[in-house]
Amino acid sequence: MDDRRNFKKRYAFVSIVLLGLALWYAALPEPYNNKELKPETLLLDVIDDTRYVTTDEVAKMIIENDYYILADVRTPEEFATYHLPGALNIPAAELLDKDENGDLKWSGVFDQDVRKVVLYSNGAIYSSQAWILLRRLNYKNIFVMKGGLNEWFATIIMPKKPDDSVADNELARYNTRKAASFYFTGGKASGVDVAAPTTDNSHTPATNTTPKKKEEGGGC
């Protein structure tokens, strides 16, 4: 009989401790950073340049209406002056803003794995900073347009005609870029001879064919 009482006492003790711990855990506030990327992983990601998407790839994505989201991280004034077609304006300063429920305001845009999100700014500094902020939240599908809008203008809007001595594929790329420039500017960009792609360089592939599929800009 004494044995049974001891037995009961022991299990009662175990039960109370377990129940207390479970109640305590249920009462704990939501851990603050339970979703954040581990620092080691983030540091490795930072030096890995698979996050870059070239301007050519961005142009192709826009023209072919690919599954993507373009996020302009510059200020609304800069956005109003010029922005890529279909881009969302999410200024870098507002990236981590919260809505009235206390959730991150832009998580609907960034925290998904269906569409590629490509960030851009004038150069690549602000967009890369934005990329780090977003990657730290462990958002998977975030990319940066390499060289930013400066590179966009230099390569897509006003591409420089390469020497005649360059390889065919470089000429083909130039022609693609000129065609893209025509697409984006309607031929109004200065220094772009919009008629050229269809008349010369008959030895290169036709300009309206899509460029050879390049290596993916990265991804998980």
């Binding site: 037995f7 129940l19 855990y25 249920a26």
Partner: peptide, 20 residues
């Protein structure tokens, strides 16, 4: 997760008593 843990602990305690 926290509520499931609580339910599971209660389930365990009931199992202790029921098996006894």
């Amino acid at each position: 997760k926290e509520w499931f843990m609580l339910v599971f602990v209660i389930f365990g305690i009931i199992a202790f008593a029921a098996t006894a």
